[in-house]
Write a protein that binds this DNA or RNA. Structure first.
Lengths: 191, 191
DNA sequence: AAGCAACTTGACCCTATAGTCAACTTGACG
DNA sequence: CGTCAAGTTGACTATAGGGTCAAGTTGCTT
């Protein structure tokens, strides 16, 4: 063999893969995972068909970039929460950080929604988030800092609703958004 | 003249108008105001072009049915709230009734969102709802039963978010939905 | 019952997006 | 440096929905 590369890709194909990834990151960041592939192709300077050749379509492309786009930040959020000792601060940090990521990254809401069930990496992320939510909420319930009748499904519903509103309306000012997150957090307390 | 009718519509056209209205009420009720016109035409037993002939398109059709579809219930909600003496119960009733209507009638969320700005009747309804919300919230603030930093825009945002989630996800069980409405109401209280 | 304006409609066109493929181009190896 | 597999792409198909119109049909008036 001539190198350490494991791929049989030709040089031009390798370059195109890199350009398409970069374009997808850029486009998904601004518009979410539903960005038309033709637009991504244009940014990358290739034709739409090349995306199908290299990634097999939107699902494969999502699989290829969701890590850099969302997974990194999501894992940071989960770890950050896990490091907060105070039970209430733990859940409050987790919820606030999720809301922050929704505000900055529409693709995060697409991930939570499992908008592309064929993308394995996306589904894995969504499931991981669900697991962590369940776990943190369980602890919060045990500690008595979150009302017993508030479930993981309730948090899921509220966050999807929030993400859809963000996508469908003019983006609210950060201050308004954060105040609303505060309201939501208040509603979690017992009584 | 041969009758008291003010319209110059021929008998077959009159019949079609009635059938289209009925079909639109039915379809909008189930699917919201975005139902494809072709589907409404099929239910009505006419061609899509006839809807354009009689109503001028979706906006005109919405204008023709939004009253029966949403306005009646919306005015009932506003009057019901206005009749509750206790300031907190007043706002709680108003918010709960809006959520209930969202659950039963997707077109109500379309109205709140002003999803069809060309439909005058829809816009008038949306504005009326905004006025009443502002007025009731003002009273609630005066009475000190709702936190000062909760604004009409906050209620608007929350209700749009809720309506979008209802449309995008499997409909939650009524009990879950009502519990979440309860959480939301709790978040309005001072502190 | 004949004529005509009112009415309806099938068959269009247009937009946007996903997805496919035959034919052309090009990188890399012997 | 010629060969050809790998790679690219323009042009295509398909789906879904909005919107329009020439041509045909029908209710109404006299």
């Amino acid at each position: 063999m001539t190198g350490t590369s494991k791929s049989a890709l030709r040089a031009d194909a390798t370059r195109n893969v890199a350009q398409i990834r970069a374009a997808a990151l850029d486009a998904f960041h601004g518009r979410g995972l539903a960005t038309p592939l033709e637009e991504i192709a244009k940014i990358a300077g290739v034709s739409k068909a090349t995306i199908y050749n290299r990634f097999g379509g939107r699902d494969g492309l999502i699989d290829a970039v969701i890590g850099e786009l969302v997974a990194t930040e999501m894992y940071a959020i989960m770890e950050r929460a896990q490091q907060v000792a105070d039970p209430w601060e733990c859940i409050a940090t987790y919820v606030s950080d999720r809301r922050d990521l929704q505000y900055r990254e529409p693709a995060f809401t697409d991930t939570l929604r499992m908008a592309y069930p064929e993308s394995k990496n996306l589904i894995a992320l969504a499931n991981k988030a669900t697991d962590v939510t369940t776990e943190l909420l369980h602890r919060a319930h045990e500690a008595g800092v979150v009302r017993r009748d508030f479930t993981a499904a309730d948090l899921y519903y509220a966050d999807i609703a929030n993400g859809l509103a963000l996508a469908a309306m003019p983006k609210p000012a950060r201050a308004d958004y954060d105040r609303r997150t505060g309201f939501f957090l208040d509603s979690l307390r017992p009584q």
